[in-house]
Every structure is written in C-alpha cells, then in structure tokens.
Amino acid sequence: MNHHRRTFLKLGGAAFGAVATAALWPLRAIAAAVRPNAAFEATALDGAYKQLGGTPAESADIDLSTPDIAENGAVVPVSVTSKLPGTEAIYILIEKNPNPLAAGFMIPEGTEPFVSVRVKVAQTCNVIAVVKAGGKLYSAAKETKVTLGGCGG
C-alpha cells in the first residue's frame, strides 16, 4: 500500500520536475526582459558582477567615453560602443557609487551596440562598461575625476 504511494510520489515528483524545467526555459530566454533588480541593489562591484553573471573579462573592443574630469558629478555623460560581435547587453557601472550598477541596456538585433546617457558619479572612481556578447561578459574601465560629488550636496 505504502509502496504504491511511494511510486506515485516519485512519478509525481519526476513529472513536476520536468514541468518545472520546461517552465524555466522560456524564462531563461526572456531573462533579459526583466529588470535585474538584485544587480541594481548590489552595494559593491563584486556583488553587482555576481548578479550579472560573473566577473567580466577586460576587452579592448569596448569604447568607453567619459570625461577625464567631471566638474559636476551629478551629470556625467557616458557613451559606450561595443565592437564585440553578438552584443546583447550593455551595462554601465560606477565603481564607488552606493549601488554601482547605474544602467543596463538590452540591445535587440538591428540596434547598434551603442548607448549614451548621463549618470551620477559620487566620487572620483572608475566608470565601467560591461558588455554581454555571445553569453559572455566583457568590460572596459576608465577613471573619471569628480570635483563636485553626484549627490548634489
């Protein structure tokens, strides 16, 4: 009697497992369509990297353009151009901000791997562009000196 119950549970468990796996697949495919909240909440660079999927490898194929000296940390223009084939996403991180991840851009096919925005930089530190291409993460960093903090006093 109990034996039957075991078998049933096992079967049920296996079936549930299969369904769960199947349900996870489309979720993965559209993972980029959900805001990576955990990555935004990370308070250190390592934590943000972890949430984005690992520590990126440095790449010379990412053009990161930021001012060397930003007079006003509240408005720092940052442009990122990726020359990596198959660029899927571009993230902009500010090393010493309270939450390093500032912005993420999902690049669908047909859109050029280029974005430009203005961000706040709390203090002199590295501005880092992380590019996801072909499922891997790459990065380029550039130091921006801030003479007036991004918190607006």
Partner: peptide, 24 residues
C-alpha cells in the same frame, strides 16, 4: 518593434538623456 530596452538605477542623472541608434 522594440529597439531598445533599458533598465535604470537611481544613478542616472536628473532629466535623463538617452542617445542610441538602430538600423532601418
């Protein structure tokens, strides 16, 4: 057609400016 999907944190400046290009 979606040509850009962006997720922002609070570190994007006030009155945000966005610049990008798409083919077509």
């Amino acid at each position: 057609k979606v040509v850009l999907q962006a997720y922002w944190g609070a570190a994007v400046s006030q009155n945000p400016f966005l610049h990008f290009r798409f083919k077509g």
